[in-house]
Design a binder for these strands. Sequence first.
DNA 1: ATGCTATTTTACCAATAAGCCAAATATGAA
DNA 2: TTCATATTTGGCTTATTGGTAAAATAGCAT
Lengths: 102, 102
Amino acid sequence: MVPEKYNVQAEIIKALAHPSRLYIVSELAKREICVCDLTEMVGADISTISKHLLVLKNAGIVSTRKEGTQIFYKLLCPCILDFVSCIANVARKNAETSMKGV
Amino acid sequence: MVPEKYNVQAEIIKALAHPSRLYIVSELAKREICVCDLTEMVGADISTISKHLLVLKNAGIVSTRKEGTQIFYKLLCPCILDFVSCIANVARKNAETSMKGV
DNA sequence: ATGCTATTTTACCAATAAGCCAAATATGAA
DNA sequence: TTCATATTTGGCTTATTGGTAAAATAGCAT
């Protein structure tokens, strides 16, 4: 009963629904970054980061560029940032609401 | 190493990262809908829908209004729609790319 | 009170996702 | 070639999620 397009969209959203991946995307919005730098920034095992990046790539959110032994990732769709700001807005509202004890 | 705000945001995004919930949110963007109608629309067990709605409510995405024995859900943040359109855009680009066999 | 409808909660199972280690692969340097 | 660095992949364990059925809860009518 759920139209097919929501399956497709949910797949993409799922790729963003993880703290590390969201952080990675936000940083990639500023500049290209290689896996080793992202690994340092996130502070997890490099294999974990590699898998996160694969998820983002499969979702069509990032692309890669090889330079020597390094692989640089970059953000494909800047509109992702608008989306993040919307979510940040919801988060802010939630914080306000819970402060009021509502 | 990942700033706390990404944990908060990822929680909200996670709530949207499911086909049924995304469909529900899209429909709630048009009008208030009660649980029983949503159940019909999605075509799943009512307990499943109820859980999905709880997820959306906990994320601060929807609110409820009781009317007799029915409970109506409505969308709290219209900006969610912009976000969905961004995702739809990514999905469209992905489809184009895979068509070209890239 | 009883019954009827709408909704949520609980309990349980199956499927998926996240994490790390170790092994494999790739590139460039010596 | 061998070595070192960068990255991906496979395997494994643990934790989370999605689904349904059954029980519990709530509101309204009789």
